[in-house]
Design a protein around this nucleic acid. Structure first.
Lengths: 345, 345
DNA sequence: CTGAAAGCGCTTACAG
DNA sequence: CTGAAAGCGCTTACAG
């Protein structure tokens, strides 16, 4: 293969110095317009592209962001959390819009921490997805902080104020899900999802649920909270456990859509009808939610906006601009899993 | 922030030359084991990471692959083809396993062709997903070929033998879907999906369908093929069109799961029961398929294997090893959308 | 407006 | 086994 053209080749053909070629190609005002045009024409003809390794080495930045997604190790390998997938899409788009490239990496909790992208100058900053569990990641985050790495983390606000987070308002989301159920006369509500500090996002949703109940003078029954991680299988198991306990309930608030869908499968198998016998609300509004049977009412996280804010935040960090944690509002998407609702309610 | 440590800093502390540091860090046998250990200890202490821009510039390769996903422009922005998402996951994994990084980019058909990753030395090779429509992409592919870019394309085998493709055997998939329906006594089958040369993958599935019918002495009825692109909405529309025509049918072979799910929604709304009145088979086995109601029988594309082969193929191309187009076998996943099947059938 | 020159941080032949 | 030196292909002060 013909070896790639360099700026020197172009300089030779254009009869100018290599410095001038570099300037012309970067649209420097320091170069004669005619010369610039001639150089750019030659560059195009030779299909010349600036060598990123060389220019990045010289300028000491990469115009590249890295996205690290931590997979829940209990997930089937082929089944990545659909919510993350949707985030990935929006982050990719937002990154491209800003003229940056995106390096993507899936990590297992157990595996080596690959976050040396920035140390090795392959990326100017990092976005972390799925690193919500402080207990497990605290150490790694502190290390990043220590190294002055530019990073943003998706999720709840971090105890350590130096960690920049962007996330949806999980408490508010929990409130609106529960208020919706309550408005339909459903008040004996089970919560499916881990409510411990290991899952700060789920926990905040639970807390929102509890406070919405409290606002109506109802005390949430702790026995009706069942741990579940973000998988269909886990939701299936949790619902079965709930059923086995023989506790009464006329509504379920699932901490995620996947949990809700698993729960609906369990209910269906046990002859419990949704929404006739039990109303159910999910969380995330993943694409599957609208295809569920019945279509799932859920708390939507605006992934498009989230991606934009995440990218915008790292970029600000990189440029040394002021940044603060962002909380994105959620939106209730009403479908049929809670029965016919009065639109005026 | 303390500026990053370089190999010179390490050399200084270790009392050796920078060349020796470089050798030690790359585990060159040319370096005294004790010296190596000392150097590596210092590197670790300083949290030193080799500057990729510098080493890539020097070695002229990036140890990075680029993945270009072409989105169907008709799709909702937030709703990326779930099959591609699943591929993305497996490609990411396979890439990491080979010690490469992955640059991901979503492109619109209309947008500028960003494929200069390799030209700019940001990537050593490119994987193309969603560039199946020859009519639209032919020119771009030829350009890549002309520039000696290392790339693999997902999909049907290309007319141009120089284009390396990896794909599932769509014809065989079509055959097995139809054979399954036939084995259940369903033989009046409608096909939902574009069967033109614009969708070579769908077309091959259709051709497989036709030949399976023919093998049983049945001529596929052309009037019962309805165009649809790979979206739920398009499947919904196609099924309605089919219903409107008033043609008889007791089975549907949908060219994708999304189409099948849209079709099932249309059938449900019109009071047609699945599988009682109509049996339906989809294609892809996307995660949603098992959550559909009823769970969808479908032709599974092995995305994990596909990702591995795709990555393996570009890597071979990069290394100058022999490569040839690969065809991956599909697998029928029987669920309930075709009714109870006799496992011995 | 242009050119000569330094230097980004590595890797690797070359000489010892 | 080790060091001095060249060079990967750029960008950008510096001098004109």
């Amino acid at each position: 293969m013909a070896s790639k053209a360099t700026s020197i080749d172009i300089a030779y053909r254009a009869g100018v110095s290599q410095s001038t070629v570099s300037r012309a190609l970067r649209n420097s005002p320091l170069v004669n317009p005619e010369t610039r045009q001639r150089i750019q024409a030659i560059a195009k003809e030779l299909n010349y592209k600036v060598d990123k390794n060389a220019s990045n080495l010289r300028t000491q930045n990469s115009h590249t962001l890295a996205l690290l997604i931590c997979e829940d190790p209990t997930n089937d390998d082929s089944l990545i959390n659909p919510f993350f997938l949707s985030m990935l899409g929006s982050i990719t788009r937002a990154t491209a819009q800003q003229g940056y490239d995106l390096l993507v990496s899936f990590q297992q909790l157990s595996s080596d921490w690959h976050a040396d992208y920035e140390d090795s100058n392959k990326a100017d900053g990092i976005i972390l997805l799925g690193y919500g569990d402080y207990m497990d990641y605290e150490q790694k985050l502190l290390k990043l902080l220590e190294q002055d790495t530019h990073f943003v983390i998706w999720g709840a606000e971090h105890n350590n104020k130096s960690v920049l987070s962007v996330g949806c308002d999980n408490h508010q989301g929990g409130v609106s899900a529960t208020e919706h159920l309550l408005s339909l006369g459903v008040s004996d509500i089970a919560f499916l999802g881990d409510a411990s500090s290991h899952s700060p996002e789920f926990r905040d949703r639970y807390l929102g649920h509890v406070s919405a109940m409290k606002a109506k003078g109802i005390k949430a029954d702790k026995r009706k909270q069942f741990d579940a991680i973000n998988t269909e299988a886990s939701g299936f198991d949790a619902a079965n456990l709930l059923l086995d306990k023989g506790l009464s309930f006329d509504g379920i608030f699932a901490a995620s859509d996947l949990i809700a869908i698993g729960a609906m499968r369990a209910l269906h198998l046990r002859g419990v009808r949704v929404p006739d016998d039990v109303a159910i609300v999910g969380y995330d509004d993943i694409p599957v939610a609208s295809f569920a049977n019945p279509p799932l009412t859920t708390v939507k996280q605006n992934t498009r906006l989230a991606g934009e804010i995440l990218v915008d935040s790292v970029l600000k960090l990189i440029r040394g601009q002021a940044v603060s944690p962002q909380l994105i509002q959620t939106e209730l998407v009403v479908r049929r899993s809670c029965g016919e609702s009065d639109p005026k309610a």
